[in-house]
């Protein structure tokens, strides 16, 4: 059981997706490549702009920071050199946020993996040229010292530390944001587990649709989503 995803819910944006995990739900839209403002224009590659819109209130420093983190990840995923002097615009509308009773840093880190996953799927839906596939995961070290994947809100309240990590399909670490107290050995253990989970999310399937490498509870949800989408896109050809 992976997150709840629905493709292309919006008509106006080039690519869009609704992404709901246990903690939050996000509506992501990607537009691009579009005309860029003079001051943002880059001569050799496309500029990436990420806008995060909270459920209530206007976006502030916290959203600005999240935007910068997400933008950095997307820059390493997109083929930016293919559209020089243009803009790739990603808008992330949060429709359900983790409870506001959580600590600030915990709230931010809890959001990040969902933001990354949602924006990646929106970019894929918008047909933008992508260099690689990325999956992000949220891991929490609960009070007993156990590591939980995709923790629930209750587990977040008493957790020792919380880690949001993203890996691409080559196993490169693209994002690492943590909150709480932990040591290096612990982080390494968590990073290994995160890599395994991320790679499992996009593990290749064999002809019968069976996972070829690594298995986790959520299965290869990202690979499945993208395969289904690609199949739906060519369904007309098979029907005729």
């Amino acid at each position: 059981m992976g997150p709840d995803i629905s493709h292309h819910p919006l008509h106006g944006a080039d690519g869009s997706v609704t992404f709901s995990s246990k903690l939050c739900s996000i509506l992501a839209a990607a537009n691009g490549p579009v005309e860029v403002q003079r001051r943002d224009e880059l001569p050799e590659e496309a500029a990436v702009e990420v806008n995060i819109r909270p459920v209530s209130g206007v976006s502030g420093p916290r959203e600005r920071w999240l935007e910068s983190v997400v933008a950095a990840v997307l820059r390493s995923v997109l083929h930016l050199h293919m559209h020089p002097r243009t803009l790739i615009q990603v808008t992330l509308q949060i429709t359900k946020a983790p409870s506001s009773t959580l600590k600030g840093a915990v709230q931010d880190v809890a959001l990040l993996p969902s933001l990354i996953n949602a924006s990646f799927l929106a970019l894929a839906d918008g047909g933008l040229p992508l260099r690689n596939t990325v999956a992000a995961v949220l891991l929490a070290v609960v009070s007993t010292g156990e590591v939980r994947e995709e923790p629930s809100e209750k587990e977040l309240v008493g957790c020792k530390s919380l880690h949001g990590l993203a890996y691409n399909n080559h196993g490169d670490l693209l994002l690492s944001e943590s909150a709480g107290g932990f040591d290096l050995a612990e982080w390494e253990r968590i990073a290994d587990q995160a890599e395994e989970t991320c790679r499992a999310a996009m593990a290749p399937l064999d002809e019968d649709g069976v996972v070829m490498e690594g298995t986790t509870s959520s299965g290869p949800w990202l690979r499945q989503e993208l395969t289904d989408k690609a199949q739906a896109a060519v369904a007309w050809r098979e029907a005729t």
């Binding site: 919006l10 106006g12 944006a13 080039d14 869009s16 509506l27 839209a29 537009n31 691009g32 579009v34 702009e49 806008n51 819109r53 209130g57 206007v58 615009q89 808008t91 509308q93």
Partner: peptide, 14 residues
């Protein structure tokens, strides 16, 4: 509070 966003399409400037 209502602010239009590029969710509607690329024509909206943030």
């Amino acid at each position: 509070n209502c602010e239009l966003s590029p969710l509607m399409g690329a024509g909206v400037e943030v």
